[in-house]
Design a protein around this nucleic acid. Structure first.
Lengths: 221, 221
DNA sequence: GGACTCCAATGAACATACTTATAATAGAAG
DNA sequence: CTTCTATTATAAGTATGTTCATTGGAGTCC
């Protein structure tokens, strides 16, 4: 996993570098917009961390430049206003983190984005249920089952990590992204609705005290 | 999707290879004209990236050789003059990109060409409705149904991506291109008129929270 | 092992907030 | 002028988050 860190403040840049290297990522650094474009083009990246306030080329221009490549981007910026956040995410960023940030939060968000943008199966079949990630159609025994956006995203996350116990936090962060401000019973309800609609009472297992796990027969792997 | 990269400069060739592999394409490489002809004939390709300055066989000859096969070609060349560009496109290339290029631009153009040259049916028939992409004539039960430009483009996009949930954004960007400045109810109205004119109320499905999907019987695939 | 307690999870109902459909109107293009 | 397209307002439909009463699991103590 290689990460491109675009950040003009060398203190912050170094901090991020140390943190990520420590966590096993390879990092390279750009300190202004021009450098960033060059480095970005030089080879493919798994993730870009982008500061919005940069010398030479604005962060937004850079984001526009990066977006078509589909490389995941996390914006790291002091401009903590809602507008910037929305604008950034609308322009194709995958997440947004405000300075000053907690190292743990940075790491968590990076992991979440990497997981979220990992390639997914187009079609998944199990026990008469078929989940099509392209058409976003879910069928059970041939009948179409209408799932809402949140339900679909949640199911999709569980399936893409099948036989893995996912914590409530992970699930919230994947499905609800930045609108997650702590525990409620929302997740439970969505789980309930999915189980009900698909007859998956025994497939989506509750992992008590942790979260949930989508269990298939070939579990042990 | 497999792409043939014809490029004698190994640095550039490798850069393209990394980029495209990272984006999920399969790549193979030819470093001179002879190799290129051989490899090109060995099996079918979805796309050819062609450098015009090559050892042994000139890029133009190669283009002439490739053109009859209808395989999409993007010329990648340092000869950035208008003449070359025109000559290349006249000879049947689908796009032209100049060195040095930005990786993001390369990817964007590749995607555009693939989308553009994707086998669109000249004629599409479904439930008594016939859509002719060449004459732009639409008939229902033998009667001609007059569609406006926007309506036709929209319908065409939906049909060419049938059974795929297309986001509102994608639809806006395809039909309205750069005149898209955010959400209004324009798209809804066009969808409504198409449904009405063609009796497609149940064929063009609303994907709540996402956009629309043109659904045919063989949906599950 | 059985009874007890604490805490987590479930499930139903409801209010709110979004999203989409529809129709009417205004504006632009030919 | 006529036709097409975009905008706006309003209505209808759908999803979502929260609350709360209830159920169930895990550990502890006797």
């Amino acid at each position: 996993m290689n990460i491109l860190i675009i950040e003009d403040d060398k203190t912050i840049s170094a901090l991020m570098g140390r943190t990520l290297t420590g966590a096993g990522y390879d990092c390279e650094f750009a300190f202004d917009g021009e450098e960033a474009e060059e480095l970005f083009d030089s080879h493919p990246w798994d993730l870009v961390l982008l500061d919005l306030m940069l010398p030479k080329v604005s962060g937004y221009d850079l984001l526009e430049y990066i977006a078509p490549s589909k490389t995941p981007v996390i914006i790291v910026s002091a401009m903590g206003q809602v507008n910037d956040r929305i604008r950034g995410l609308k322009m194709g960023a995958d997440d947004y983190i405000c300075k000053p940030f907690q190292v743990a939060e940075l790491l968590a968000r990076i992991e979440a984005v990497i997981r979220r943008t990992a390639p997914t199966d187009d079609v998944f079949d199990y026990k008469g249920v078929s989940v099509n990630n392209v058409s976003r159609v879910v069928t059970k025994d041939g009948e179409t089952v209408p799932l809402t956006v949140k339900e679909f995203d949640l199911l999709s996350m569980l399936i893409n990590n099948r036989n893995v116990a996912l914590s409530r936090k992970q699930l919230y962060e994947y499905v609800w992204k930045e609108e997650y401000y702590g525990e409620t019973r929302t997740l439970d309800n969505h789980i309930k609705r999915i189980r009900q609609k698909l007859g998956y009472e025994d497939v989506i297992k509750t992992v008590f005290g942790i979260g949930y796990r989508f269990e298939t027969e070939e579990a042990g792997c």
